[in-house]
Design a protein around this nucleic acid. Structure first.
Lengths: 191, 191
DNA sequence: TACAAAACCTACCGATCTACAGGTAGTCGA
DNA sequence: TCGACTACCTGTAGATCGGTAGGTTTTGTA
């Protein structure tokens, strides 16, 4: 790369790690975490499997880096979220199937016993539900137009987003994910 | 077993196969399909891995049997479905986490490439969406109280069911799956 | 009771996987 | 320029995987 010469060793190493995480994202999307071999990830960045282990000492360590990447991904301050931004997020997601596929596959695996991402997703959902309840409260107050509280609506909102993703990933032709999500939002907003 | 003597060979064989499928259900719930080894399933029914292959010649053949079991599971004639039965189904599911875990794990895996259950889930969702649209139409006619059509509501209904399952499996203490689903139904039924 | 088929088993193959051990070439600061 | 460190590599251990080959015991049947 042309700007590579300007990098110091630390930046180069960080860039390499980022490359590896990106490759891991892809391989997990294709094969799931259990099905993703270190060798497949390594090959994608021009390393041997053992070379990869120089950057991430175990497979689990690589997964942790992938999950941290995701956290960074949707790190929008709570105060800045609004309902209509959620619709935009879903639309944006519809343009990035690879990412959605990665985390849908991981979510599915994570419900199995002793899966290394299980605690991550459990904590994440608790966080996201609370965050969504806050968004709903900011929009509608303590009661939605339909009579439900933000706290009771938040799990539904999250469920719709996730559930639509699976249907859409399996059959994008038949499922209009952003449209369906907007339908759900109008459901919330009605009297 | 006491009634075993009364079985003929064919019935015994069928019973054995059913045992194996049940064991496979469990192991898949614990480790996913990719993580489920034939040896683990075999051990659970007191067979060697090769003994199991006598009944199901390949791992994929066993998966097919598992999926067929599921089809049989929720084979309720369309005409008999009603909205309130869906709520009961969710309540029933909440008492059988193992089954839910099996198929949630399988669904998650199935979005990866060349997964042997991918076509199954794609077809199943098309079928279930159509079926749900029918149920909604029978209940509400061509327009739901909120103005949406049954066809546009069906994907949301399915998404909520699936999405809630993941949240509930990860954290049953925090997520009241049947309650949340009832909340969603009231959302549909309001004017 | 003889024969065939069903219901297993042991033995094994080749592939794949994560991870460890230890070596080597290049880089970089003192 | 020297010594340490980074960034890899080869080699390999040790386990597990799905599946094949071919045997043996059990069982049902004619």
């Amino acid at each position: 790369m042309s700007y590579g010469d300007a990098m110091n060793a630390r930046a180069k190493s960080a860039e390499r790690r980022a490359e590896i995480v990106r490759a891991a994202l892809e391989v997990i999307a294709e094969r799931g975490y259990r099905g993703a071999s270190l060798a497949a990830v390594a090959e994608r960045v021009g390393l041997t499997q053992q070379g990869l282990l120089h950057y991430f000492p175990t497979k689990d360590a690589l997964l942790v880096a992938v999950l941290e990447e995701r956290d960074q991904w949707d790190a929008v301050p709570d105060s800045q979220w609004r309902i209509d931004l959620l619709a935009s997020l879903v639309e944006y997601n519809a343009m990035r199937p690879a990412i959605i596929q990665t985390f849908s596959a991981l979510l599915g695996e994570s419900v199995t016993e002793e899966h290394p991402a299980r605690d991550y997703f459990t904590a994440r959902y608790a966080r996201v539900r609370a965050s969504m309840a806050g968004v709903l409260r900011a929009e509608y107050g303590d009661r939605l137009p339909n009579g439900l509280t933000p706290e009771r609506t938040a799990p539904l909102l999250v469920a719709v987003m996730d559930g639509l993703q699976y249907q859409w990933l399996l059959d994008p032709e038949s499922v209009d994910m952003p449209g369906a999500f907007r339908d759900f939002l109008t459901l919330l907003g009605e009297t």
